[in-house]
Amino acid sequence: MQAIDPLGLAGLPGRPYVGVSALGAQLSLDTIPHAASRPAAPAGAQDALARLTALVAEDMAATNHLIVARMDSPVALIPQLAAHLVAAGGKRLRPLLTLAAARLCGHEGVRHVALAACVEFIHTATLLHDDVVDESALRRGRPSANAMFGNQPSVLVGDFLFARAFQLMVEDGNLDVLRILSGAAATIAEGEVLQLVTQNDLGTTEAQYLQVVEGKTAALFAAAAEVGAVVAARPAEDQAALREYGRSLGVAFQLVDDALDYSAEQAVLGKTVGDDFREGKITLPVLLALADANGPERAFWARTLERREQTDGDMAEAQHLLARHDAVGRTIARARDYGAVAVATLDRFPDGELRRALADTVTFAVERAH
């Protein structure tokens, strides 16, 4: 196939041209997820996720094949930009939940493969849009798509991936699946808008913060797990249990992310440390520190987060104040509470390797902080 280059990107520094016919070669299925480019995690956490991945390895390979196929387009910039993001790696945690939940519930067909790809497309689309909104320079330790290609292509390719996700939902043909996944997509957008509204506002409440987390992160975790039970035609109680597993896991995951933004090394976090602080996001570590803050401390947060008048030493001072009030440690403790809820929801399912791997995945989500 003759590759086209409608925007003249071939040969530009930092923008290796990828034609449509080269997409499959660039996204070698042996390197998705691209382990070498992923941020390091503690050995125990890595083992937990590796076990879950190994248990659904064939399904994951089929999902990756479908992802590559559905990212193809005669408009060469689409697979080029999508390839940049997907080849950067990632844990594939959300589609893994769909695959594992379906197998846990006894599903023996292949519908869950397309739905796992759908979940990953929704997630990837939101990453593209989020990085534009947040003006992020890094994604998974590599230059973000917007940094490489610009904001407009990132937004439009994100739209393309959302469209691909909805095509996969329609092809599945189940109204419950469409309701769950389309509802999650809408909730994610609401969560992102609410985060934008509460940004730079020290009056943000913990309830509002958790509403943001439920929307922008937990909603897709919940939907990813729930549709696994739906395709297996399990009763409503099992669907609800897996939905709660995904929701609680998603909240725990985001709480740890917000803690890591103030405590992690950049190589561990996979994005620029301190992004939340620089953008004035009101996250749980900040809320906990604010609740105990004295006058000068509140003045510091007002200057740096509300007015965004930041100097070179302010990030270090923010970390010092969070440490004074143990805000990061208390955030991780809260994440563990949500993790315990997630594990408890699995009790209704028969014991076995998949159930234990899903429980251990909660450990992965929380213990990334250590």
Rank of each mutant, 00 (worst) to 15 (best):
I188D: 06
T283E: 01
L77D: 04
L181C: 11
L288E: 10
A357G: 09
H84L: 11
L249Y: 00
I32R: 04
V230E: 05
E309M: 08
N174L: 11
A342I: 10
Q239N: 05
Q167P: 13
K281R: 04
I188F: 09
T217S: 01
G183S: 04
E317M: 15
Q254D: 01
P143T: 07
A207H: 13
A259P: 01
A43P: 07
A147S: 11
A223N: 05
A45G: 11
G274T: 04
L12T: 11
V170M: 11
A323K: 15
A40V: 13
A36P: 08
L178Y: 12
M148V: 12
A62G: 11
L196N: 05
R139C: 07
Q239T: 07
A57M: 08
L269A: 04
V132M: 09
M169E: 15
E265V: 08
C118I: 13
R94V: 00
M71H: 02
A369Q: 12
L127I: 10
D258Q: 00
R38N: 15
V197Q: 13
Q254T: 01
A293H: 10
V75C: 10
A40G: 14
D172V: 12
A218F: 01
T304Q: 04
G106H: 01
S73K: 02
G150Y: 15
G14Q: 02
H107N: 13
R278K: 07
R179S: 14
R308V: 11
L81H: 03
R356S: 14
A25C: 06
G280R: 01
V18W: 10
A316S: 15
G246Q: 00
T363D: 15
G8T: 02
N294S: 13
L23A: 09
D275H: 12
A333G: 10
R179L: 10
R94D: 00
L55R: 07
A87H: 14
E190D: 09
A83P: 12
L269N: 02
A22T: 04
G14L: 03
P6K: 03
W301R: 03
A240W: 02
L85F: 06
G250F: 00
R324G: 04
A189M: 13
H84W: 11
H65E: 09
A264H: 06
Q199D: 03
G280D: 01
A145T: 09
P16W: 08
A259V: 01
L66R: 12
E206I: 10
I180M: 09
V366Q: 00
L12I: 12
